[in-house]
Nucleic acid binder design. Sequence first.
DNA 1: CGGGATCGATACCCGCGCGGTATCGCTGCC
DNA 2: GGCAGCGATACCGCGCGGGTATCGATCCCG
Lengths: 282, 282
Amino acid sequence: METRELRYFVAVAEELHFGRAAQRLGIAQPPLPRAIRQLERRLGAALLERTSRTVTLTEAGSVLLREGRAALEAVEAAERRTRRAALAATGHPGVVLATKAGASSELLAKLLDAYAAEPDAVTVDVLLCGIGEQERLLRDGRADVALLHQPFDATAAFDVEELRTDGQVVVLPAGHPLTGRTHVQTAEVTALPGLPMPRWPGPDGTYPDGPGPQVREHAQLLQLIALGRACAILPDSHRAQLGGDLAAVPVLDAPTVTTVIAWPPHSRSRAVAGLVQTATRL
Amino acid sequence: METRELRYFVAVAEELHFGRAAQRLGIAQPPLPRAIRQLERRLGAALLERTSRTVTLTEAGSVLLREGRAALEAVEAAERRTRRAALAATGHPGVVLATKAGASSELLAKLLDAYAAEPDAVTVDVLLCGIGEQERLLRDGRADVALLHQPFDATAAFDVEELRTDGQVVVLPAGHPLTGRTHVQTAEVTALPGLPMPRWPGPDGTYPDGPGPQVREHAQLLQLIALGRACAILPDSHRAQLGGDLAAVPVLDAPTVTTVIAWPPHSRSRAVAGLVQTATRL
DNA sequence: CGGGATCGATACCCGCGCGGTATCGCTGCC
DNA sequence: GGCAGCGATACCGCGCGGGTATCGATCCCG
């Protein structure tokens, strides 16, 4: 199976429309059915059900869509990492670290400082990214190492080292009645009148249904809370970034959040190893 | 990057010899340097250092070797899983479970029995495999689910669910002086006179240096121990399989072994889900 | 119920590129 | 210095991927 065939199939499977898929691939429409048929012959499996009007995935087709995406990502990762390795060899070493924008900033600062003090430190480019974006960056080779938060980020498929564990706090507008409490329970804050929990986009970019505001960044969320339009349960480490217009109260029964440093398995980069070692020693 | 190019490069990188690589690939020699050069141009990276006598990998080349192997495995996995899904759709559903030959046999029996009693159970083909082979089977799509043993098997890249934790015991020939003890320490048994620890093959198939006998299977190992030629530290669960010519003594400071059921991430198979659920309820 | 619009499939052609054979050129070794 | 081994090059043929033109089926709309 060639990556070209896979790319074609994934495009058609995603669009469920040969014409649009061809447009997306930058080719004419006729080669597409041919390529897919050939793929089906080679695999001995029907991938698409076509009528002259519509295209749907078969069971095998949806398996190939999932697995094929992963395989294409692996190929692209190989390509990118090779390019980066070549760049590094010709005098521009460096690692790319991905982390959630607005999270763990003080841990991150400590890590960068400590690593920079190492004798064989290289440049660390920090990639601040949106929710759930880091895993993709790590998988497709755009990042070499990332700070992830269990249990929110999927850490399967990566090697990880735990860095710290935090309890969670509910972040409220300053002056809210609950801010006087020393601690609360989850149930007390999930349905506060007028302060719904925000909705984060899922991996597919869509938002779940619910009353809360749609948010994409931490800064945006904190602003919404300050305005008295929402509240949120966040790791304790965010407290340091809260301004005077926000208050935090520990939530006793919320799951603890573990910050981990993660890197792709079989990464042999000296720089990544050094960064990980520095991180675990903090 | 096409998988053909990747396959070519991996072959050359592994053989470090264009002629042998061509032979292995079943093509003539001339297309190979051309394909590799084209790949190098496309990547903008030197992958191989060639003299007219020898070939060596550059830094970027060894990165592409590692990453390319993983990518090829992902592509092959996609292919195999699609074929299996198509087979399953045409009336032959079933899952393949990989487990170490000779390990966890009683846990495995319980699992298979319990799962077979489920209303929507499908055929479970059990693949007994050698040391370290399961991860590969799981990755390349030959198996759908596996029983692994932490910390010996690499579980990164998989979703896992813990099933049980065992202490470890040292297995000795019956009548050995230590068999009278209620427990021992690791240090007491790693260098017993005349009873060296066996050597298992590494991921590359070679054996580490050392005094112990080279073993590849549990049965072989148990026989060697019964003959008084070796001893071994194994999970407690192996006790049930020991005949009268063998004895086991708990090793207090050996790491505990966790048996986990593992499956590839984003596996959506109903059968795998059922198997996992059954396993966790045992 | 018929005609146009839409979309996948087919027919056919062209040109690139992959793979083959023959051969060269360099290097290390006896 | 001659031979053997190995990678690189030259050159050729054909298969296949991609293009244009067109067909044929289905849905929609009046």
